[in-house]
């Protein structure tokens, strides 16, 4: 049907293009479908289709083997009575908000410092590196450092003679996951913000200095407004990636061959734990799908709200 539109589209095609390209444009339109369809088919079949299927499954009771049984919204109402899900929901949101706030605050401060330093290219590469390392590895290392007889306790006891601190007991485990998440994500956001700040022409800062602006005022009136576009995209990017966090929590503290304790689960672990995961998987496909869909809807709403909140008139410079 897209091919049927040219009579309308043709006359107002590109300004200033040489006449000879009209025929070229017309025959290029013939490439449109063959070029776009393979990607579209894969995308529909393996991403969009399964998402809709998950929505369908979420209205059923199903273990993947026997027949699906319709049970309407029961899965969803059961979720809210399930303390495990409520914990997973809270954890996901805590990661989003608390870790997110820490990541952006720290990244901003680091960016402001790093951009004036010698060797910033090297610093940025090192800070960024965790982003391309498997989160499982980072999780193992993070756990190892804070083990009972791990690095941190060893250093503390030799320097201060303190007793080993139980970093990884049930009370502290999620906190350590939060801090670990901040550790592995900060470098990425430093890199993104640094790239945005680098695009700000130098003379804005010089003008600000001449006008007697202090460091805070330069941040508030030059850096923030002029890098706002990128920061708002980065905030949405963080929202999306925070929902996807799985490996770091899954492998954390782990020498067991089971799931981590439910107290540290987030949404992704909840889905996995209620379907395929654990020593004896529960195969609650309908229930797990309901939680996944619920989180997807919640995060979609959050992103819409976030976009509204972060929208500013973009400044050309």
């Amino acid at each position: 049907m897209t091919l049927a539109t040219p009579p309308v589209g043709e006359p107002r095609h590109r300004r200033g293009s040489p006449r000879g390209t009209g025929a070229f444009d017309r025959s290029r339109r013939r490439l449109y479908l063959p070029f776009v369809v393979p990607a579209l088919v894969l995308y529909l079949a393996f991403v969009i289709g399964p998402t809709l299927a998950a929505l369908w499954i979420s209205f059923h009771r199903w273990d993947g083997v026997s027949d699906m049984r319709w049970n309407g919204l029961d899965n969803y109402s059961a979720l809210f009575d399930d303390p495990t899900f409520r914990t997973a929901l809270a954890n996901t949101l805590i990661i989003l908000v608390v870790a997110g706030a820490a990541i952006f605050a720290i990244s901003f401060v680091l960016t402001m410092i790093v951009r004036e330093m010698r060797g910033r290219s090297f610093i940025r590469s090192v800070l960024f590196f965790p982003h391309i390392v498997s989160a499982i590895v980072l999780s193992i290392v993070w756990g190892f450092i804070f083990e009972h007889n791990g690095t941190v306790n060893t250093i503390l006891s030799t320097v201060f003679g303190t007793e080993p601190i139980p970093w990884l007991n049930a009370d502290n485990l999620f906190l350590m996951i939060l801090i670990g998440t901040v550790w592995i994500s900060t470098g990425l956001y430093v890199t993104i913000i640094l790239a945005a700040v680098d695009r700000i022409p130098r003379y804005f800062y010089e003008e600000a200095l001449l006008a007697g602006a202090n460091a805070y005022q330069r941040l508030r009136f030059v850096t923030l407004p002029l890098s706002w576009d990128v920061i708002s995209v980065a905030a949405i990017f963080w929202t999306i990636s925070s929902l996807k966090i799985f490996e770091f929590i899954y492998a954390f503290g782990g020498t067991t061959n089971d799931m981590p304790p439910p107290a540290v689960w987030n949404s992704a672990l909840f889905v996995y734990g209620e379907s395929f995961g654990g020593r004896s998987p529960s195969y609650l496909f309908g229930y797990a799908s309901a939680s996944a869909i619920l989180m997807l809807v919640l995060f979609t709403a959050l992103i819409v709200v976030l976009r509204r909140l972060l929208r500013r008139d973009s400044i050309e410079f």
Binding site: F46, V47, G49, P50, T51, A53, A54, I57, G64, I240, L243, K244, F246, S267, A268, V271, Y272, S275, F276, F285, A288, S289, A292, I293, M295, L296, F299, T300, I303
Partner: peptide
């Protein structure tokens, strides 16, 4: 924006 945990169960069935 669609995380793997949403699609994994239908994909497995497929």
């Amino acid at each position: 924006g669609i995380p793997a945990q949403v699609t994994v169960i239908p994909l497995f069935e497929m």
